[in-house]
């Protein structure tokens, strides 16, 4: 899932300091699962804002909705007619959702209430670890299922570097050396041959705004454009 964490309250408060009426929009998918921007967190943020602004003697009016996803037009359109009178929208979705919301309602300022941190996994209640940087050409097959882009501090495709230190990474004793782990797992699976050859680098020129069209839909996209 996409993992995000709530921004510090003061930051949010200062973004909407000039607003009398704001509308907070939560997202029921990724950010709800990682406990950052679902209906509950929306409620909490709204109450925080209300309490703080009342204390300042500058009350704020808050409207609210939690959409299924903020990264789909159809769900975003559910806001139509509800938000136009507000001074600003606070979105609790990931960065993609926030941008898409802002794109759909370009006349209203949209503020992020979360920091999007990673594509990650759930370790424990409220604990998430990054696992993927969306490099666009996955090499997990070669590395025994451990991502060198994310887990190696240098993102090496041919590791480890000279800094590997008895299983730890040279940047920090508490961070595992990704390549040590890769080696360990490949040995266990008897697939060490995998990393004996030099792996060519990823084509990092792909780090532009990427559009993904599933193969089955390529032709229809082209025809629809024409």
């Amino acid at each position: 899932m996409i993992v995000a964490e709530r921004k510090p309250f003061d930051e949010i408060k200062s973004m909407v300091k000039d607003c009398k009426k704001v509308f907070t929009v939560g997202c029921s998918t990724c950010v709800a699962v990682c406990l950052a921007g679902g209906e509950k967190e929306v409620g909490i943020l709204n109450s925080e804002l209300e309490i703080a602004r009342n204390a300042d003697g500058n009350p704020i009016e808050i409207g609210t909705a939690t959409l299924q996803r903020q990264c789909d037009t159809e769900f975003l359109l559910e806001l139509k007619g509800k938000i136009e009178d507000y001074d600003a929208i606070i979105s609790m979705a990931c960065g993609a959702g926030i941008q898409f919301l802002a794109e759909h309602y370009p006349d209203i300022p949209v503020f992020p209430a979360v920091d999007t941190t990673s594509i990650g996994i759930n370790k424990d209640v409220g604990v998430y670890e990054e696992r993927c940087r969306a490099c666009g050409t996955c090499v997990l097959g070669m590395t025994g299922g451990i991502c060198p882009v994310t887990m190696c501090a240098k993102g090496l495709y041919n590791g480890p570097c000279g800094g590997t230190n008895l299983g730890s990474c040279e940047i920090n004793k508490d961070q595992a050396c990704a390549w040590f782990k890769i080696h360990e797992r490949l040995v266990k699976q008897d697939r060490l041959q995998n990393i004996m050859d030099v792996t060519p680098p990823n084509d990092w020129r792909n780090q532009i705004p990427r559009t993904t069209i599933q193969p089955a839909y390529k032709e229809r996209c082209e025809e629809q454009k024409a």
């Binding site: 193969p215 089955a216 839909y217 032709e219 229809r220 025809e223």
Partner: peptide
């Protein structure tokens, strides 16, 4: 029919 045609093209590849 158009969806079917697209799907067949995809299957072909």
């Amino acid at each position: 029919n158009t969806y079917a045609k697209w799907r067949v093209e995809d299957i072909k590849s």
